[in-house]
Design a protein around this nucleic acid. Structure first.
Lengths: 215, 215
DNA sequence: CTAAAATGTTACCGACCGGTAACATTGGGG
DNA sequence: CCCCAATGTTACCGGTCGGTAACATTTTAG
């Protein structure tokens, strides 16, 4: 349908829609729908519409739905890695502080989530093909994250870093799916509590050993 | 295509295929494919074929794919509840023993899983509609399970049962998704270790308090 | 053996989906 | 003002999927 009103002096249609670049807008809309309705539960047409554009334009930015999915996952992962860098910058040389702040940030995210679970977790469940590029991105991220936690536990002087790191990771991962039956708030609080507790216990143990050697 | 060989004395076609009732066979085949390829990733035709039957017969037993999904989930949940009864029977009046055996059974299941995650967890991620009957079944099950763990923690004399129960549940849930990057074996072992540790710590604390009162 | 119940076969429907082609429109930069 | 690039519009293709109808066949019970 052609509009015969020739845009007299007003803002152009493009600038009316949004100042955000199209590609980013598509990614945001896609992520929103993927998370709310599931990756397989939403079609590219709906994504384009939500991004205030159309399917054709979407396919000019992304070669396929799978690529769109992968780019979305990449964005989430990049954001998380950024978060880790920030964590490291704010608690330089303080591995315990990083772990504790990490639990607090996760708790905050949990509180803001409510209902539908973790985006990455769901995406993982929805992409059974182990060769899907998005799956590889997620797996690599998980591995990096786990290694980072192990390193932090080692630096914090935990006697069995692999063990402690697995506890941390298990609880962090589990908090997302567990919150659906307990409530995200309480889960978040308990998550923070237990991390604080583990860190504190470790500090006391280290002081005790120190005292034993010096006394 | 009609077979003109009139089945002379040999086993009939039905008995050749399987002695397992058709409905159960369909459910097993469906569960297998659901778990391996994702609920939305498998069609009813493939399920029927895997069950050595056809779509029409499948629809004589299940009104829709959603009902098939729901029945499958119901089966898993029923099996888990059965497991809890067995746990209670084998460790009657021993809440710590139940928690410990629970972690051991979970570790065993983890070891046998390898690669694709928890069936219920994946199903939850794949059914975004909060009104889906299967989702309700899962949620109710999760709630019952969590209450049971709280009750056990209370019976075991944990000072903050809600807190401890949340820890147990978080780790149990998290172990499934975490294992993809660490390896299910190690996760299972550490899961067992930490539950044993928590139970043992609690016992020591109780003994200490007991000693304080009597001494 | 026969009738009825269960199961199989085939063909089909409508809806949706991922993806593409061809063409129209709009917008900004020279 | 005009051209070129970006974006929009429409229509379409092939495939898959959930679900059903009509009819053939087999199995079981009496």
């Amino acid at each position: 349908m052609k509009t015969d009103i020739p845009n007299n002096g007003l803002k152009t249609r493009k600038s009316l829609r949004s100042t955000i670049p199209l590609r980013a807008r598509i990614l945001v809309a896609a992520g929103d729908l993927f998370h709310k309705q599931g990756i397989r539960g939403v079609g590219v047409e709906a994504i384009a519409e939500a991004a205030q554009t159309n399917k054709m334009t979407l396919y000019r930015y992304f070669a396929s739905k799978d690529e769109l999915i992968t780019e979305w996952v990449r964005g989430i992962v990049a954001h998380k890695e950024e978060d880790w860098k920030d964590l490291n910058a704010k608690h330089r040389g303080d591995p315990e502080g990083q772990l504790q702040d990490w639990s607090r940030r996760t708790a905050a995210k949990l509180r803001a989530m409510e209902e539908r679970g973790s985006a990455l977790g769901n995406a993982f469940a929805e992409l059974p093909d182990p060769n899907h590029p998005a799956r590889r991105v997620m797996k690599e991220h998980k591995l990096r994250e786990h290694k980072r936690v192990v390193r932090l536990c080692k630096a914090a002087g935990f006697p069995d870093p692999a063990f402690s790191a697995n506890l941390f990771t298990m609880m962090l991962e589990g908090a997302h799916s567990c919150g659906t039956c307990v409530g995200m708030r309480q889960i978040g609080e308990h998550l923070v509590q237990v991390v604080d507790l583990m860190v504190e216990n470790n500090r006391q143990r280290q002081r005790a050993e120190q005292g034993q050697r010096t006394g």
